[in-house]
């Protein structure tokens, strides 16, 4: 059975790209004396696989990484976690290590929050307008395709959006969206607001993945 770990990417760790993150983990395993399985061939590479690459700048407390160790079956989950966390850079932290044979394809949905920041206070009617936007039958956005921009309706990929004011300057969107096939980049939620509610365009938006979910809406493990 392959091993899985749940980790978070927060603070300044959010600026590390997906490729860099893979190398970072490969090195952290090596530093911790944990022998990852390697690919065959001329230049063997340690194998780690991170489900659902996270965009640079997005925070997450629910990242999944699969790995296999060679000949270290007696190591406990906590030991692996401790050794990894001992040499992590700021913002990357392993939360849990466990065995899993649940295939990644069952990770179908993501819960995430989008925080809209309004420096001069939330504008009148913004909360209602955003709520109304996501209650529409369809929201068509332009998306970059292989042969130039294509239209895409994002509504089918949104399971729910709950809007609430976090404080006088921040609107919080609690969303559940499709994670794979097709997947929705939460940045598209912000893009939808910018395109359809230009008067309520935020000064900045923060995105955070909070939970990975199965089709039934249960926690994916």
């Amino acid at each position: 059975m392959s091993k899985r770990l749940l980790f978070e990417k927060t603070g300044n760790g959010i600026w590390i790209s997906h490729l860099d993150l893979m190398r970072l983990f490969q090195r952290a395993f090596k530093r911790g004396g944990l022998h990852l399985k390697h690919t065959q061939g001329f230049s063997p590479r340690a194998v780690v696989s991170i489900a659902l690459p996270l965009s640079v700048g997005v925070e997450s407390v629910c990242e999944i990484l699969d790995f296999e160790l060679v000949g270290q079956d007696d190591l406990g989950f906590d030991e692996i976690k401790t050794r990894l966390n001992a040499t992590m850079p700021a913002g990357i932290r392993v939360l849990e290590v466990y065995d899993s044979d649940v295939k990644i394809k069952h990770l179908t949905h993501l819960a995430c929050t989008v925080t809209l920041e309004y420096d001069n206070g939330i504008p009148e009617g913004a909360e209602e307008a955003v709520r109304a936007l996501f209650a529409r039958e369809s929201i068509v956005l332009m998306k970059r395709g292989k042969n130039g921009p294509v239209e895409q309706d994002i509504i089918p990929m949104i399971r729910s959006v709950e809007v609430s004011a976090l404080n006088a300057q921040e609107l919080l969107l609690d969303c559940v969206i499709c994670a794979q096939n097709p997947s929705l980049n939460p940045a598209q939620i912000v893009a939808a607001i910018e395109a359809n509610c230009p008067d309520h365009k935020p000064d900045f938006a923060r995105i955070r993945r909070t939970r990975v979910l199965t089709e039934k809406g249960e926690d994916f493990r």
Binding site: G11, N12, G13, W15, I16, S17, D20, A28, V56, G57, T87, M88, P89, A90, G91
Partner: peptide, 13 residues
């Protein structure tokens, strides 16, 4: 481009 180079926080910093 490459924002990670501006934040520090690397291991052994």
């Amino acid at each position: 481009q490459k924002p990670a180079r501006y934040t520090g926080g690397e291991y052994n910093e």
